[in-house]
Every structure is written in C-alpha cells, then in structure tokens.
Amino acid sequence: MKCRHARKIIAEHLARDDHDVPDELTAHLADCARCAGLWHEQVRIHTALTDVGAAPAPAAPADLAQRAHRRLLEGERIPPAPLRVVLVYASLAAVVAIGAIAIFTNRARLPGGTAPYVARVDPVRGAVRHAASDRRPASDRDEQPVPHDKTPSPGGTGNSLPVSPRPAEDARVDQQPVPPESDQIDLLIIVWAPPAVTTDEQRIPENNWRPHTDLLSPRSADVVARTTLVASPVRSPHPSAEPSVPSVRSAIFAALPVQSMDVVAELTSVPADTELPETESPPDPASSDVTTAPEPVMIVDSLSSGGEDDEQPCEPEILLCVHDGDDPVLLCGELGLGGGGLI
C-alpha cells in the first residue's frame, strides 16, 4: 500500500466512525513511520474535538419560529440583499449592456452590417451600368441622385453613356457613403475608360487623370491606407486609349488626402500588362439591368461596345468598390477632366 492510499483510508475511516482499522492500513502503519505519525495525529485531534463537542449545545429561545411567524404576519419584508450582492449584479448588468452596445456599434460600422447609411450595391455590375446609363445632365443628377437599384433606366437603352464631357468642377459623383474602417475591407479601384476615346491625339494628359477628391474622402483614405488596393489598367476596346498604370496610380494617389507610401507600393505592384480576370462580354443594352453576382475582383469593362453612343465622348469613370465578402459597397463617379480635354 502506498502512503497516499493509506492517508485516504485514514480520512475515510475517521469519517465512518469505524473502530475497526483495516488490516492493510495496520500493516502499512507498521512499516511507515510517517503515516503512523499522521494516523496518531488525526486520531488525537479527532478525540479532542469529539470531547469538546460533547458539551451541550446552547439553548435556543423557544419562540424563535413564532417570532419569525409574527414578523411575517406583520408584513415585514425579507431583509434586502446585501449591498455587495446588489453591486455585483449591477456591475454585471452594466458590463453586459456595454458589451451589447459595443457589438451593435461594431456591426453597424461593418459594411456587411445593418447600418442604414451604408448603401450596398448588389450586384455591383448592375449598379455600375445603371449609374453609367443615366443620360440626364449632371445638374439633374445633382438634384436627384440616381438610385442604385434594379429599376430600369428611363432611357431604356441601357448602353447609353454620359451625354457630354463635363468640366471637372461640374462633374458630380454618384457617391454612396464610404463605410468606416474595418480590417475586413478589401478595396478595389477600377478605372474605366470609355471607348469614345480613340485617338492618341485626344489622349488626356496624365495629370488630368484625377478622380474627384470628394469621391475619396478622408474616411476612404483611411480605408485605403489599411487595405489592399488594386488598380486595374483600363480595359478598353481601344488599347491606344488606355492610360498607363502609373498614370492611374498617380491620379488616384494624388486624389488621396493622405499620402500613403503603402498605397503607392501596392499600386506599383500591379504592372501594366497584368493579366486581369476575364470579364463578361460587353453588356447587352436590353439586359443592362440584369444583375450578376459580384466577383472577388471586379473589373468593369467598357460599358459601351457599340451602337450610336460610341461616337459620343464621355468621361472616364472611376469605380471605387469597397466590399466585404459578398456585400460590396460601390462608389462610382466620373473622373474630372480638367480643361475640357477629351480622352
């Protein structure tokens, strides 16, 4: 028998008030002086306590229960819980409330959250077409922003382009609120050059490639600084009209209120000849409002692939897509062309 087992038997033996010591314990105690000393110690204290405890119990008042009954009949309330208990429960309730508020707030700040000010575009491609197909003058659009929903455009053609180039100061952006910062946000900037730009002579100087600064608000700049930024070169049926990646990069970067070298590095890492994910064929005018599922990397190709609007000069658009998983939030606007230049 091991000493540990012997001590367990000692404890249980005293618990049972059993006067017969097990043989195995007796044998172990004969061999182990330490356990024997422990045994005698336990028995000695047990005996002493039993002797002291044999004294009569203090007499209780005979009317204790009756007094309690009287207190009950007199309508006396139960003594209130100790202040400590109240404080503990109040603290717990406060922590739970703060936690709930924090969770609610964080959910509201996420793009996928339920915040009413975060407009979601789903799918993105459909919304892009819808915004681009607005034929109304910019002033009208100022007064009545185009909703990003599935409602067919008033023109009904679907492949229409902006009527005419607008000065940068007049150009307005169909801007949706930028979601606040989130570690889960991926940022994708897509620059789209319309096919109306066909000749090298009309190519806009690089310094005129500048998105509206109000499109890239300080808030979005924070997002950009912390997330992956991908600028795709322009996908246009007319390669000669495509601006180079550096021009896009400098244009976007110049528009950022916050000069971030990280952003520059990210943009630089996208070479001009990067093979971009294949996009669908140019949109069919009749199905311009048909929605498609958003892709992980969304490339918006030329929105006009033919028809009478091809000859219409239009402004390049910048599409700023902030998405979290399957819930993209799209910002779309037009690049301002200073000096009335045409691409």
Binding site: R7, A11, L14, A15, E41, Q42, I45, A48, L49
Partner: peptide, 23 residues
C-alpha cells in the same frame, strides 16, 4: 462527501500543528 472527508482531514492536520504541545 469526499470533499467533506478531505476538508476534515486537512482541518485535523492543521489543528494538530496548531495545538502541538498543548494537548
């Protein structure tokens, strides 16, 4: 019950040390 046994066992041990030479 095991916890009761354990607590009483340790209580007796502690009392033995506290009352050493006094009983």
């Amino acid at each position: 019950i095991g916890t009761v046994c354990s607590r009483l066992y340790h209580a007796r041990g502690r009392l033995a040390r506290l009352l050493e030479g006094q009983l």
